[in-house]
Every structure is written in structure tokens, then in C-alpha cells.
């Protein structure tokens, strides 16, 4: 299950569909689990009338969480050393997201082999919503 140095090359990619037609209910579910009850994510009245956005939108951390699933499915459980993102565009109900990890570097840290990945999540229009990196321990 774990990635191996001998089987990896710079430029290798791994892609997953994170969600199709994101539902408001999933955003509510994330609010409840994470504890971030910002009405911008779940309260259409507040968000359209007071904050002046066209509709509620997903927590950045929901997109980061789903992107994290793609990464751990690729690198294996308990292997992640670093994971960071920039939220480059909002994610809206109805969006469909795809996420790709690209091998950027195969290196060593503290005597252990490590893969550095570029991470990008895009919506159905090809717009980048998350741009980031991850680094994970791999097998020799």
C-alpha cells in the first residue's frame, strides 16, 4: 500500500474525484463535525442578504479535508509529514472537484525516504480551488 522509492518517478500523478455536485447538506455536515458554524457556509439568507455572496459556499477546510483524502489514499495511512494549501477560489454547492497529486521530488529526511508532492484541486470549469503541497514518508 505504501509508496516505494523504486516505483516512483518525478512527474508521476495520482488523481481522484473528490465530489460531484457538492450538496449543501455536506457543508452542514462539515460545519457540525469541525465546529465552524460560520453562517457563510450554511445560512443562505445571511450569506445572500448580509454578506452579499450569491449563495453559501464550502469551508476552505472542507475542500482541504477532501483533498487530504486523495493524498492519504495515495501515500497510505499515517505516512503524511506535511500538508499545506492556499485556497485560491471559493467552492460552491453544485461544484464537482477533482484533485491531483504530482510527484515533485523524491528525497530523504532524517535518513528516511520522502516524497514531496504538488497538490491541486480544480472545479468542473478547470478553475484551481486549492493549490498546495504534501510530503510523506515512503518505503525504500
Amino acid at each position: 500500500m505504501a509508496l516505494k522509492v523504486s516505483e516512483l518517478s518525478v512527474g508521476d500523478t495520482y488523481t481522484e474525484c473528490l465530489v460531484e455536485d457538492l450538496k449543501r447538506t455536506q457543508i452542514v455536515q462539515y460545519a457540525g463535525a469541525s465546529g465552524d458554524y460560520n453562517p457563510l457556509h450554511t445560512d443562505e439568507v445571511f450569506t445572500t442578504e448580509v454578506a452579499k455572496y450569491p449563495s453559501v459556499f464550502a469551508h476552505g477546510m472542507l475542500s482541504m479535508g477532501m483533498t487530504g483524502r486523495m493524498i492519504t489514499n495515495y501515500v497510505g495511512d499515517g505516512r503524511l509529514k506535511k500538508y499545506g494549501v492556499r485556497f485560491t477560489s471559493q467552492v460552491w454547492p453544485g461544484d464537482s472537484l477533482n484533485s491531483t497529486a504530482t510527484v515533485d521530488e523524491i528525497t530523504e529526511e532524517d535518513g528516511e525516504p520522502v516524497v514531496n508532492l504538488k497538490v491541486e484541486t480544480t472545479n468542473q470549469d478547470g478553475m484551481v480551488v486549492i493549490s498546495g503541497y504534501a510530503s510523506a514518508r515512503i518505503d525504500p
Binding site: Y30, A33, G65, R69, D77
Partner: peptide
């Protein structure tokens, strides 16, 4: 468990 469900991770 609830957090993993909310990010649609069924691992």
C-alpha cells in the same frame, strides 16, 4: 468518525 464522514472519507 463524524469528521471523516463530513469530508466523505470512507477509509
Amino acid at each position: 468518525m463524524m469528521f471523516a464522514r463530513s469530508v466523505a472519507d470512507d477509509n
